[in-house]
Design a protein around this nucleic acid. Structure first.
Lengths: 238, 238
DNA sequence: CGCTTTATTGACCCGAATCAAGTAGAGTGG
DNA sequence: CCACTCTACTTGATTCGGGTCAATAAAGCG
């Protein structure tokens, strides 16, 4: 339960009652292997997946077999509140590492919306945050050069993982192969590889295998034109 | 009020009480000229903007002066529920045409969340929908060729405008200059122009000035690899 | 009727996809 | 323990898409 609490607590402090409700919601746990499909495309689920531990991606295959990853999720993310409100999923969610997940029944979420307005707003906000993240990625994809996009991606993940205590000593793990990264950033593997080398050459970050270490945050954010504002880590309205 | 009702009614039928509440929420009307900034970047608004009539874009300027448009909004869209839940805006919203807008006080929205769980879910859902749209655009940007992206964009806007009765006889108006379109799709104006010509050459759509007419929906959707699923026009859960 | 904004075209060149090959490490089985 | 295979990463060569620069129409508009 901790990561979601950590996630929500960044903004408003949860009351004891709210914490208790979250714990109860997330009681139904499961550990799944990497590459497990957590939410299938086209499905109409009756429960939503909350990531407790590990990372997952939202992905979509095009008719011509190309894959695009539209979002990356970390511990504490309520991966498919989408499914709670929409009837069918237009994409699938797949575990990128071994993950611990909690399955939250939609009927329980519904009860929350009927009885816990403040908690409802907090959950609603996580969707707004997700949207802000995707929007920032749109901007990055449309207007940044590949190496800058990689820098932006590293900055974003750094802060998101920090919030749930998954970084230590400026280092964190990105469990993606270069094929995954290419599908996240919308480019070819070959070019991704070269862009990654270009990024390494700036000496702002060390990125070997899945271990990423920030060496110069200041310059890295400039490179990626990264402005943390959209992650809204500050105080909340509620 | 009509467009939002039309928008929300596509999924669940609103009760009379809920309709009445929406009408009251949106009582504070204003007409603004094209290019008016409806929501400023960095602001922390106390009210949210509901588009009654016209179109608007979410945009963001990068440090180097480049602009990216991350979303397009049409009549009936609750343009910045974002601001209701987050503390500051990371981008601005600008009218793309002359618009009629309604200003909804956050305090009133808050009351809705405390007393109208079903309406709350419907509003929440509009945010989820927005996210789905942006995600589809990420996929399009990352993996589709420019002409296909234009086709995708036309398909999406067609269905969204149809929902609020803004299309007639397979035609609708896209009030964007080619500079705007370039910033929406993340490419240069010159190339956008050429891609548009390529799209016209397919004879699936007529696109002259701001008037777009679908000539062959079937082929246009194939071209843009457009699958309407993500717009979730079907029945709702609630 | 000038002036600005928008659309279009050509020339040039760099960036990025594709194709193809080679290397390295991890796991498997004889 | 070594050959075999698979996957991930890297590199080079080639081609083509798409950006930039520059110029010209065309169309509003004051």
């Amino acid at each position: 339960m901790n990561p979601l609490k950590a996630h929500l607590n960044t903004r408003s402090h949860l009351t004891c009652e709210e914490e208790a409700i979250l714990v109860r919601l997330a009681a139904r746990r499961e550990r799944v292997a990497s590459k497990t499909e957590l939410v299938a495309e086209g499905s109409s689920p009756f429960r939503s997946c909350l990531l407790i531990e590990g990372m997952a991606v939202r992905q979509h295959y095009l008719a011509d077999g190309k894959r695009m990853i539209s979002a990356v999720h970390v511990a504490g993310d309520f991966v498919d509140l989408h499914g709670f409100l929409m009837d069918t999923m237009d994409h699938s969610v797949v575990a990128a590492t071994s993950c611990e997940v909690a399955w939250v029944m939609h009927s329980d979420l519904r009860t929350v919306t009927e009885t816990q307005p403040r908690l409802t707003r907090l959950l609603w906000r996580t969707v707004v945050e997700d949207a802000a993240i995707i929007r920032a990625n749109i901007t990055a994809m449309g207007r940044l050069k590949p190496a800058a996009r990689l820098a932006h991606f590293a900055c974003e993940l750094y802060l998101r993982l920090e919030r749930v205590a998954k970084v230590s000593d400026h280092s964190f793990r990105i469990p993606f192969t270069q094929y995954d990264l290419a599908d996240i950033l919308g480019m070819s593997v070959v070019h991704l590889n070269r862009s990654l080398q270009a990024l390494r050459a700036t000496d702002t970050v060390s990125w070997e295998a899945d271990l990423v270490t920030i060496k110069d945050w200041q310059r890295l954010t400039e490179l990626g034109q990264f402005d943390a504002g959209y992650l809204n880590l500050g105080a909340s309205k509620d």
